[in-house]
């Protein structure tokens, strides 16, 4: 076991994958200088041909990575901030997601696009987005949302192995969080949720950084005699619906904590699926704990209360079990 941070875990996954396969290359702004910390000594280890500093041309290099993936490379693209993905929206939606389908299966796109969600750090609305739900709405993209160092490393190894395009939404609120990781290489499969804590009264599904908050909430609730089951889906596409349904069948209640905006968010989708396929086991309305549909303000005092917190998750659980009467948004 070695204790490493979330950020270092991403770097480790990249290093292992690049050492294992010369077709894996890294493209991104400032990767050669390791500005963001996920490519330490990569230039020395792999050279500038495989560690490529990109110009600030997201549309260009996102598309180029797709073309390279279609013709024999397995690129990893570091987009740094998730908000910069919008510059490349056409390439993500019209090329990356569609090229295999539109050409009748002739293309494979083994490419991973990594982007960090820098919320809760006073970067204001241009740098704080958590845009995975937008991309869940685009068939053809696989989506991982690692909630810790272990998940970040294991999921990224799988993502690089996959012959499909993967978007990795990394949670910058977790960057420095350390965890003990196995010394040997490991992978976490896509579409398999992690049952973080078992419980009987209520199911809490939490996404990315919200898993950490939910853990705290579940611990506090246990102290109050409430047994909550915590599930981390780990990947949103594919989504492990079975594990969630199985849990709701046991608990009859569901709270979904999702740091993205509420409307058409991941929580909305999970709620809809449970409503469609698990309605009979529900004893209470499904509740969402999201970021409200507002842009992210700069001032820490304005920003901090907006995201799913342990306190907000705890309150939602109490509403779900009827300990608190009405649902106020």
């Amino acid at each position: 076991m070695t204790r490493i941070s979330y950020l270092a875990a991403i770097g480790e996954a990249q290093r292992e994958a690049m050492a294992a396969d010369p077709r894996v290359i890294l493209i991104g702004e400032d990767v050669q200088s390791n500005l963001y910390g996920t490519a330490p000594n990569f230039v020395e280890m792999f050279g500038v041909e495989r560690v490529r500093n990109a110009p600030i041309s997201e549309e260009g290099f996102v598309g180029a990575a797709a073309g390279a993936a279609m013709t024999g490379l397995r690129p990893i693209v570091d987009l740094t901030y998730a908000s910069f993905m919008y510059m490349a929206m056409d390439q993500f939606v019209n090329q990356v997601a569609k090229n295999r389908y539109m050409f009748g299966g002739q293309a494979s796109l083994p490419v991973v696009y990594r982007a960090s969600m820098f919320y809760r750090s006073s970067t204001a609305a241009h740098h704080s987005d958590r845009p995975y739900p937008m991309f869940m709405n685009v068939p053809g993209l696989k989506i991982m949302v690692p909630s810790g160092a272990y998940e970040a490393k294991g999921l990224l190894r799988t993502a690089i192995d996959l012959d499909d395009p993967v978007l990795s939404f990394e949670d910058a609120t977790l960057w420095t969080k350390k965890q003990d990781l196995p010394d040997e290489e490991f992978r976490i499969p896509f579409g398999v949720a992690n049952l973080v804590t078992e419980g009987t009264d209520v199911t809490v599904v939490a996404i990315a950084g919200a898993v950490e908050e939910a853990r705290k909430a579940v611990a506090a609730l246990a102290g109050e005699g409430v047994s909550a089951e915590l599930i981390d889906p780990r990947t949103l596409v594919p989504l492990d619906v079975e594990t969630i349904l199985k849990s709701v069948a046991k608990t009859g209640r569901l709270v979904v904590a999702d740091p993205a905006h509420r409307t058409c968010g991941a929580a909305a989708e999970i709620s809809a699926l449970v409503n469609e396929y698990g309605f009979d086991s529900l004893k209470a309305p499904i509740l969402r704990v999201n970021t409200p549909d507002i842009q992210i303000p700069f001032s820490p005092s304005l920003e901090r209360p907006l995201y799913p917190s342990a306190r907000r998750i705890q309150e939602a659980v109490k509403r779900a079990i009827g300990a608190v009467a009405s649902a106020s948004p």
Partner: peptide, 12 residues
């Protein structure tokens, strides 16, 4: 939209 894709094929 396919221009970056060709550029990427050249990269590979």
């Amino acid at each position: 939209s396919a221009i970056p894709v060709a550029t990427g094929a050249a990269l590979s």
